[in-house]
Design a protein around this nucleic acid. Sequence first.
DNA 1: TCGATACGGCACGTGCCGTGCCGTCACAGA
DNA 2: TCTGTGACGGCACGGCACGTGCCGTATCGA
Lengths: 199, 199
Amino acid sequence: MTDNRAARADDRTAAIMQATLDLARELGYAKLTIEAVAARAGVGKHTVYRRWSSRGLLFLDAVLSLDTAGLRHRDTGDIVADLREVMTRAADLLGRPPWGPLYQDLIGEAQHDPEVAAALNRRFIEPQTADTLARLRAAKDQGQLAPDFDLDLAFEILSGPLYFRLLVTQQPVTHDHIDRVLQAVFAGMGPGARTTPAS
Amino acid sequence: MTDNRAARADDRTAAIMQATLDLARELGYAKLTIEAVAARAGVGKHTVYRRWSSRGLLFLDAVLSLDTAGLRHRDTGDIVADLREVMTRAADLLGRPPWGPLYQDLIGEAQHDPEVAAALNRRFIEPQTADTLARLRAAKDQGQLAPDFDLDLAFEILSGPLYFRLLVTQQPVTHDHIDRVLQAVFAGMGPGARTTPAS
DNA sequence: TCGATACGGCACGTGCCGTGCCGTCACAGA
DNA sequence: TCTGTGACGGCACGGCACGTGCCGTATCGA
């Protein structure tokens, strides 16, 4: 065992992130202190500061280490069904612990810490956006969407209401709500709106 | 002058809120301390704590005391034009100091302070929502919208993308962006979409 | 005249910050 | 085998802001 060194370091890193998650769940991010994290992880404060330069970045790493399985789009050939699958999964994640409150706190922190905002975008928002846009683009290539269908705008209209509920009104995001958003985007909101998406 | 008492109290309240705004602009909400606010306002800390039970609620009061003129909808008979007017005004407010960064910080604080979240909703979000819905309802009554047009959903689709850009991707909200959202909601996103909204 | 109330100023104990210093221990190189 | 190096846990420190006491003062109503 030549490299117990690196393994031990990784163990400590994992222990610190786990302690961060545990304490954030128990106390909320607002009352999370690095002293408490270090104590809970059985670690000196230096060991935390050596790895993360701020509480926000530690929290970011901890939250993003959680499982986000199922947030990548499949391509079954049905764009609406594939979007619905990921959106409902996202809503379920965000609506319940542990993800919900933690992610909410994380975005809250991003509002007054530019480093956290930048890292959150680069590591989570942008990849998720890219995945969604790729799926939309494939649908357009397959002729499921009009040639002038604005993919970026569609993504914002699909995501916006979810985040609006999560961050602003703090209402729950239901599956029915998602269906209505999907229908609005893909079938329109007017009188002639089809009740089932175009196939 | 029987009531110099109340007048002086109001003066202090105003001075504290002004100091809060000044310091928030200079340092950002994250570095805002009640000690500094009291000192800047020329006031004892008790005088602050007597009026506000937390830093978040003080900040809320201070931010909401700013001028929000022009965020109420007119009724010119053209629903899209009236919405566009308010949305562009909102985008201009949120995109620039002083409103933009302060409002962003305020929503950030609301993510980990339920009292701030509740008060923000009650005092700003809900009235603004009600005003928008009233304008939409009038349009429906005037026959400008289909009878089954979902007003609540429309409101979320109009607001969501703006907040998504403000809070998540932190991209600027341009007038062109607003026009595209409006067109998507009122003319649809498909191939038959009219390039000008229904009249 | 006399309480009552709000005030500014000051000081206090508390908690967390970020950073030193120390002794220990596992490892790498000579 | 010996020795240097680096990360570590533990501890203590100064600094800062917290929220709350206490004091003397000024302004008001009874």
